[in-house]
């Protein structure tokens, strides 16, 4: 029975001491400890969150870079294509113009040649005619030195006139 009979003295001291300990520990130990723990947990949590956010940002940045690079690549391809197209067009144009010019020049040359040829031919013809007349004149002069021959010729003419 002794064992299970609480003594008044111990009840008193235990009550007083426990209240004092509860108060002192709550105020000077548990409060700062819990506050520090909470603070540390928050700081860890926020650090983790920030790391996550940074990761996401990095990803976004990387994606943005990728997109930018892609855009730049497309732009470059476009510019190069356009440039090559423009170059081809210019070459084509230049070729066409050179062709045209050549054709025109050949035509001109041909025309000039023809004209020259015609002129030359006309001159040759004229010269030939002059020469023929000269030759005929000389032949006639030579033929008609003899008065008999002149007579014969006149006779011929007269005969021909008679016939008409």
């Amino acid at each position: 029975m002794e064992l299970v009979t609480p003594g008044i003295g111990l009840i008193f001291w235990q009550t007083v001491t426990f209240i004092v300990v509860l108060f002192l520990l709550s105020k000077f130990a548990w409060k700062p400890i819990m506050a520090s723990l909470r603070e540390r947990e928050h700081s860890i949590e926020s650090a983790l969150r920030m790391a996550d956010q940074a990761k996401l940002e990095m990803q976004a940045l990387k994606a943005g870079n990728e997109k930018l690079l892609q855009d730049a690549r497309i732009e470059r391809d476009r510019i190069m294509r356009e440039a090559s197209e423009a170059g081809t067009a210019i070459i084509e144009q230049a070729k066409a113009r050179a062709n045209d010019e050549g054709t025109r020049m050949i035509e001109n040359a041909r025309q000039a040649i023809n004209n020259e040829k015609k002129a030359a031919l006309t001159e040759v013809k004229n010269m030939a005619a002059t020469l023929s007349i000269d030759i005929a004149e000389r032949i006639l002069k030579h033929e008609l030195r003899d008065p008999a021959a002149q007579q014969a010729l006149v006779t011929d003419y007269i005969k021909e006139v008679n016939l008409n």
Binding site: L24, A29, S43
Partner: peptide
């Protein structure tokens, strides 16, 4: 009291 005041002191002296 000694143990837990010491522990609490540690939290104050090296916070975080």
């Amino acid at each position: 009291l000694i143990v837990f005041f010491t522990v609490a002191g540690r939290y104050k002296s090296n916070p975080g």
